[in-house]
Write a protein that binds this DNA or RNA. Structure first.
Lengths: 347, 347
DNA sequence: CCGTCGGTTGACAGCGCTGACATTTCTTCT
DNA sequence: AGAAGAAATGTCAGCGCTGTCAACCGACGG
């Protein structure tokens, strides 16, 4: 018959469903949107018709008529495992509520970012936005979202936004615990690899580290605290500085796994045995943590969980439409240590 | 005044732009859609008005009226670096053409997949879909897409779909070259780690390996060829089998980097020195390849490039709407070897 | 028996834009 | 200058759905 695949049918419309179920389109609409005030048998009849016709409401039409979009935006700076996990969790949660996730990388360096955000947000009429760090602290993004009236959820912001929810993890406590573990293993000279400023993660993790050290009245040698940018390549440099210090540490605590892996690399290069001569701890429990040998002791981040919660906040918020509930929700999750081979007794 | 952020303006409509530019909405529409037949000065006037009003066309309305959606779907099975890179490239290309990317994980095991795809595709009226392996060979997904009449681009399918384009890389040649390098280094007993069946990648990579071996009249010890599933954890098992063989190989060629990393891990565990006693080569040039020590020799995949091409195929296809051009495009990219420390002379 | 009321359902307009086609304006040629 | 044709612009309906509000239904009380 046709040159195209044969089974291709035109999609059903709400009118067709209405006809079949002997009701008005409006009533079908009520059923689709789970509105109350439809008698049980009517609903059943409509549901039947929907099933038979394999009807799928047209999102464009729904959005246009209802001034909605069924879209949530996920804004991120750099791709990576974190994004992957987050995205997975967020998509899952969205699907449960008939929403869709638009991913949008935003170049944090670009000056056009405000425009980008505005364009996206207004074209798509996003119903909400999730900001991954370090975007969660970016004033321009925040402003653009606020101006467009899009409710935003901030993930691990350094400064909690007064008027939007945020989702956090207790990195500080976890870092303290990890440091304590190192101390229990007899380590006293411990190096720390900082992430780039502007990330809550690096701040909190260092604070936890410092807290544990000070609690034991141990001093932190500034030479052993170096700043990286959470990336492996940079971590190499950073690790070389720490391991090249006048007095070498017996342990290094890196504020993420990529940098920890870099430290392990450098150690190998210069012939330091792991974990015999040097213990290394990371943070995040990224895939790489278990892909190197010895495997990295680290702190597990329940990223998917965080994502689900973030998406949930936006979804829950929607029905009200008029600002967030008071007080503004700020869930904070606890973290778990994952001890692995990279940490051993001090030499 | 208001309790919300003050600057919040209602978005402009095409009518407002039309009024301001003293033309009809239709002419504004023409400008927005880059249609010909608008005088230069008129166009300029309209562009001006658009700028002044910061007008952003409502995608829902555009889609509804024009039977479009401005959406391209990216379907994948498992998240990972490949997805990350791909997504990045695809989003970039989409933005250049005013399109948006919807990401959709699809559980390849689930029996509901067909329904999921159908729902998504029909609700969103996707303008095109990109299938990442191994989805690119999934008959149910292919069928669901075809039934909905959504043009699809298949990435590295095992069997090229007759009626849709595909984008490929010449994995076979690259694998042959890599194997030749190993041979040049004096390796004769070489192990190979296969990926899961259903991936073109694993097939082609093995073929290239076998080709190079046979060209030198070298036999392949079946005990040294083990099947993994492209994942690290599984690679550990796989590597143990290979390294536990009666006669140990002097090199291992893994069909992806995660498994190669696993091989490196196992080697370390059992005290085999790298690359002194064992050389390892991977494939993909994933981040982990440079995050372990010694760094992995591997084959670089231009994933973003592939993604851009895939998105481009869909975008280019759109204007015609009536099937793909003949012959159906099947770009195939060449791959480059990245030699790194994990490969050295045979002992 | 009628009025009233809560619960259901429907009529209708319109969301913001574009397709098809009509109309106007400018060129060009005789 | 006038006709014919091309180019530019406009008119109008309608995409598929939902908000608003009106209409309807049956049960109940007086």
């Amino acid at each position: 018959m046709s040159r195209e695949t044969s089974a291709r049918r035109e999609p059903a419309t709400i009118q067709m469903v209405a006809d079949r179920a002997q009701v008005s389109p409006k009533t079908v609409s009520r059923v689709i949107n789970n509105e109350p005030g439809v008698r049980g048998d009517t609903r059943a009849r409509i549901l039947d018709a929907i099933r038979q016709l394999e009807y799928q409401p047209n999102l464009n039409a729904r959005g246009l008529a209802g001034a909605r979009s069924f879209l949530i935006g996920l804004f991120y700076d750099k791709p990576g495992d974190y994004l992957n996990e987050f995205q997975t969790g967020a998509v899952q949660r969205c699907r449960e509520s008939d929403l869709h996730l638009m991913v949008q990388p935003l170049d944090i360096a670009s000056k056009e970012m405000a425009r980008d955000v505005g364009t996206l947000v207004r074209q798509l009429r996003l119903e909400g936005a999730i900001l991954l760090p370090p975007l969660s602290d970016h004033p321009i993004v925040r402003a653009a979202l606020a101006e467009a009236g899009v409710p935003a959820v901030h993930i691990a912001p350094v400064r909690e936004p007064v008027d939007s929810p945020s989702v956090d993890t207790d990195d500080r406590t976890a870092a303290r615990h990890m440091t304590e573990r190192l101390l229990e293993h007899g380590h006293r000279r411990i190096g720390f690899m900082l992430g780039p400023p502007g990330h809550r993660a690096t701040e909190q993790r260092y604070l936890g580290f410092a807290h544990a050290m000070h609690a034991r009245a141990l001093s932190i040698d500034p030479e052993l605290v170096q700043t990286g940018n959470f990336e492996f390549a940079d971590g190499l440099e950073c690790a070389r500085r720490i391991l090249g210090a006048r007095s070498r540490p017996t342990a290094i605590f890196a504020s993420n796994d990529d940098m920890a892996a870099a430290a392990a690399c450098v150690a190998r290069q210069v012939g330091i045995e792991l974990p015999g001569e040097l213990s290394i701890a990371g943070f995040d429990d990224a895939p790489v943590a278990s892909m190197i040998w010895p495997q990295l002791a680290t702190v597990h981040q329940p990223v998917r969980e965080i994502a689900r919660i973030a998406a949930d906040l936006i979804i829950q918020h929607r029905p009200q439409r008029r600002g967030w509930p008071q007080p503004i929700p700020r869930p904070r999750l606890d973290l778990e240590l994952v001890m692995r081979g990279s940490v051993g007794p001090a030499p």
